[in-house]
Design a binder for these strands. Structure first.
Length: 878
RNA sequence: GGAUGAUUAGCUCAGUUGGUUAGAGCGUUCGAUUCACAUUCGAAAGGUCACUGGUUCGAGUCCAGUAUCAUCCACCA
């Protein structure tokens, strides 16, 4: 049968069709895989992308890594499950839609009202969500779409409510007044890690509250001083020691304050005056001091960022206006001692950039330090730290364990309420002073917009932090809570939880990973995953973060269109190591496209030279004939062992590199070249079979295409797909070190001679032919004489090759050849003396591993033979 | 201020538990090419593994310190 095979592989022609075949086969769902009952599960949850935008290269990299893991384990016979989904990304999404709305219609969300605005959000997210899911399929991701989830779909809403209620009943969720980061523009609280810091120039004012107060304080925010209730000094500070414990009534620009002087070791004596005006309501640190010293809390700034009532002429001003006025008034009254410019850090909102106002507010919190019965009288924090310490959860690379534990150790109570509209509604209702917490609304529910008033239950208007729902991702996607009754897991939760790996970016260890751990420990009573594999960020060619504003972003879909998914995947997998950022450029993707073409041509060549070519999983010793056969089969079996080991240890890059070099350098450049003269279709069929299986997790499309062309006629034969084939197993009996060594010499010889002869326009193929045919002439000794000439096992042979070189050298440039020989001789002299002294060292011989010692012994013999050969040759030349 | 990482060829990066003469790709130079592939092939040049010490028979790899860069965390009253 003559095959018509195009010259190059055209990914665009096959990829979508192949993906459809995979998806239709149902094999993405592990329940459909033909597996023994005791097959182990291998579960990964896909970190759900935010539905705010389409996918970027970072997502592609994540998909490539996870799909590699899933395909590898599926082939290895695991019950491989990869769960897809998307994240509603509450604040981020609301912001995007708000911005759009303003741009397109000039309206704010308040103009529309809650209900209409939310409709807009859903309209928006349906579109982006569809795009994201389509793009995910484009990457070849073998996700089980039958289990697709969204952090804000009905099932997840139920789960989140259940979780909230359970935590509330356990007392680990509670409402309280705490100081929070408040964005006056977004009108919402922000978590600590949602803040961004900007250095800015600020004025540092030094002044006294009034003339009767003995201590001057320094601040960049004089307007908050209206709420001061204390002045803190360092207990060691001799200047102020005597005042500690005293209380002063002061008149601060017409506002009466009671100021107590307190001692606190955190106060730096060198900064400003060494005295800090304590404003408990508007500074995190001051809040803590107030708690410790039992100080009064005076709120100065309200939730719009303005000065509250009761502060005389300052009331109603914005904080900036008030700051200027306070400064002016201080100067007028002669209390201002100094005004200097300093640099300080301003916390700003990560969404809108407005400066953040710390202020006390009623919020819902997860109490991370509360001891819980269900956790063996440990707190969420303690338990979450314990699982990392006991290595129940391992981080890759390991150094991130420290980042996790450090952060966990310093974790404060987690504020989970957000004053935004889009997100999970808080399942809490109020009626006057009464409060109701439950999965369903209580009877007599009033309209959502109404104020809590007597007679009607009104739901809390806030929504939950987006990480609350994504923190539940490993179990909310596996049917929690239905699948957990009385502590007993059932169905999916039993089969697939805890998951095996969480693969994600190191930047969200704190935001996400830590929360998943706490929530899973609480809800299911077990860890959410065994391993956390952290990938780096994908940077541009110059090592800069890709961003739309800089215009240096590469759209993965453009790259797929241009070079094919396999090339994009390979470019993202090879050259990236865990925890380290990676650079990527179009050139890199292009070079992997070339590799895919190379693989294609290996197939094209083999299929056209062997019309009856059959892929075989195994090969019998009898069918391995020539040295080249022995060599390639041996190399292949080593490769299988190495790649398997690498993948098991998450060394994807290394595995990919090895595969690439085998296919390109060993198989295509050498074995196929020689096979033009010495055909052996069994070996080729065997090698290609294994290579396709090994490469499939890296480049699923091209390998499936070739596999299909060679193995099955119609696309309908689901169980013949490469995707569900077995992973190759290395056969140690086929590893032949001797053959490898011999072949290496052959390569060297051919290379050298080809290069020398090439200036005489002698066809290199003919040279290969000379050697290769001789190798297979069944007069083994004769053949190897030429080849082994270089292997230098005996002096006589070395002289032979030396003479061969001499022949050639004579034809070329004797002086050059002499120079080269001289260099070689020096090199070998060096090696001989080095190795000798090493072997004479008793400590080395006794303490080094045996194989290292033996290796050196062998080497010494080899070096010596070579050295003598070269010397003799040089003499001859002279 | 605290922590973590990086520093290896002109460029981008590998280098597994310390063990042959430290690797790859790109680039450069020389050469080949009716052959499955110009998306090709053969070869060469190019390295004090940031620096200084230490441990060891042996260090790119382990330890300590220094420098530069990057990232994260805290704080800047």
């Amino acid at each position: 049968m003559k095959r018509e095979i195009p010259k190059t592989y055209e990914p665009q022609r096959y990829e979508d069709k192949i993906y459809k075949t995979w998806e239709k086969s149902g094999m993405f769902n592990p329940d459909n895989l033909k597996l023994p009952k005791n097959a182990k599960p291998y579960t990964i949850v896909l970190p759900p992308p935010n539905i705010t935008d389409k996918l970027h290269l970072g997502h592609s990299s994540m998909l490539a890594i996870e799909d590699l893991l899933i395909r590898f384990h599926r082939m290895k016979g695991y019950r491989a499950l990869w769960i897809p989904g998307t994240d509603h990304a509450a604040i981020a999404t609301q912001n995007v839609v708000e911005k759009r709305l303003l741009k397109e219609t000039g309206k704010t969300r308040h103009d529309l009202g809650r209900e209409k605005f939310l409709k807009e959000v859903w309209k928006f997210l349906r579109v982006t969500q569809k795009t994201i899911l389509k793009q995910t399929r484009k990457m070849g991701a073998s996700l089980d779409w039958s289990r697709e989830a969204f952090t804000l779909d009905d099932e997840r809403i139920k789960a989140v409510r259940k979780m909230f209620v359970e935590m509330y009943e356990e007392g680990v969720i509670s409402r309280g007044e705490r100081i929070v980061n408040w964005c006056p523009r977004c009108k919402s609280t922000l978590a600590d890690d949602e803040l961004e810091y900007a250095t800015q120039k600020a004025k540092l004012y030094t002044f006294k509250y009034d003339k009767n107060f003995p201590i001057a304080i320094a601040t960049t925010r004089p307007e908050t001083k209206l709420g001061d209730t204390a002045v803190a000094v360092n207990p060691k500070d001799v200047r102020y020691k005597n005042f500690i414990g005293q209380t002063f009534d002061v008149d601060f620009l017409g506002v009466a304050l009671k100021i107590k002087v307190i001692a606190d070791r955190q106060i730096e004596m060198d900064f400003g005056t060494g005295a800090l005006g304590v404003t408990p309501a508007h500074s995190m640190v001051d809040w803590k001091m107030a708690e410790e010293n039992d100080l009064e809390i005076v709120k100065v700034i309200n939730e719009d960022g303005n000065i509250r009532e009761g502060f005389g002429k300052f009331s109603g001003l914005t904080s900036l206006e008030a700051r200027e006025l306070v400064a002016k008034e201080l100067e007028k009254s002669g209390m201002l001692e100094k005004e200097e410019e300093i640099e300080n850090n301003l916390s700003t909102c990560y969404r809108c950039g407005a400066s953040v106002e710390p202020l006390p507010s009623k919020q819902w919190f997860v109490l991370v330090d509360k001891k819980l019965k269900r956790l063996g009288n440990k707190s969420l924090k303690e338990k979450a730290l314990e699982v990392a310490k006991k290595k129940e959860i391992e981080f890759m690379p390991e150094r991130f364990t420290k980042r996790y534990t450090d952060w966990m150790t310093n974790l404060h109570d987690w504020c989970i309420s957000r004053q935004i509209w889009f997100g999970h509604e808080i399942p809490v209702w109020y009626k006057g002073e009464e409060i109701y917490v439950g999965e369903k609304a209580p009877k007599g529910k009033g309209p959502a917009s109404a104020k809590a008033s007597a007679g009607k239950w009104v739901q809390d208007p806030d929504t939950l932090d987006t990480w609350f729902s994504s923190g539940m991702w490993t179990f909310s996607t596996l049917g929690w809570p239905q699948n957990l009754k009385n502590g007993k897991k059932s169905n999916d939760l039993k089969k697939f939880h805890p998951t095996q790996v969480l693969e994600t970016g190191y930047e969200i260890i704190t935001l996400w990973v830590s929360r998943m751990i706490m929530m899973s420990l609480f809800a299911v009573g077990e860890i959410p995953f065994e391993k956390v594999y952290l990938h780096g960020m994908v940077l541009d060619k110059l090592g800069k973060k890709m961003s739309k504003s800089k215009g240096n972003g590469i759209d993965p879909m453009d790259m797929i269109e241009k070079f094919g998914t396999d090339a994009v995947r390979l470019a993202l997998l090879v050259g990236s190591t865990p925890g380290n950022d990676m650079r990527i450029s179009e050139d890199k993707i292009e070079s992997f496209r070339n590799f895919v073409t190379k693989l294609w041509n290996v197939y094209r060549f083999s299929a056209t030279s062997y019309p009856e070519l059959k892929l075989a999983e195994k090969i019998s010793q009898k069918k391995i004939k020539t040295l080249a056969d022995r060599w390639i089969v041996s190399r292949l079996n080593e490769l299988i062992a190495e790649v398997t080991d690498d993948l098991e240890k998450y060394r994807f890059s290394l595995a990919g590199e090895k595969l690439q070099s085998f296919v390109w350098n060993d198989l295509a450049d050498w074995y196929l070249e020689i096979s033009k003269l010495e055909k052996n279709e069994y070996v080729i069929g065997y090698v290609i079979n294994c290579v396709l299986r090994l490469l499939h997790p890296f480049a699923p499309f091209v390998t499936e295409k070739i596999w299909g062309d060679l193995n099955y006629e119609s696309a309908s034969s689901a169980d013949k797909m490469l995707m569900v084939e077995k992973w190759p197993v290395s056969d140690k009996k086929l590893i032949d070190k001797k053959a490898e060594k011999e072949f290496k010499k052959l390569q060297e010889t051919i290379g050298k001679i080809r290069n020398i002869r090439s200036s005489y326009r002698i066809d290199p193929v003919r040279i290969i032919k000379t050697y290769a045919t001789k190798l297979n002439n069944k007069e083994i000794i004769e053949k190897l004489a030429r080849v082994e000439i270089l292997s230098g096992k005996s002096k006589a042979k070395t002289i032979k090759i030396a003479n061969l070189h001499l022949d050639i050298a004579e034809l070329i440039d004797i002086e050059k050849e002499k120079e080269r020989l001289q260099k070689e001789i020096e090199n070998f002299e060096n090696l001989v003396s080095k190795t000798e002294s090493l072997l004479n060292n008793e400590k080395f011989v006794s303490s080094a591993p045996k194989n290292v010692v033996d290796l050196n012994r062998n080497n010494l013999v080899e070096y010596k033979t070579k050295l003598e050969g070269q010397r003799e040759l040089l003499e001859n030349l002279n």
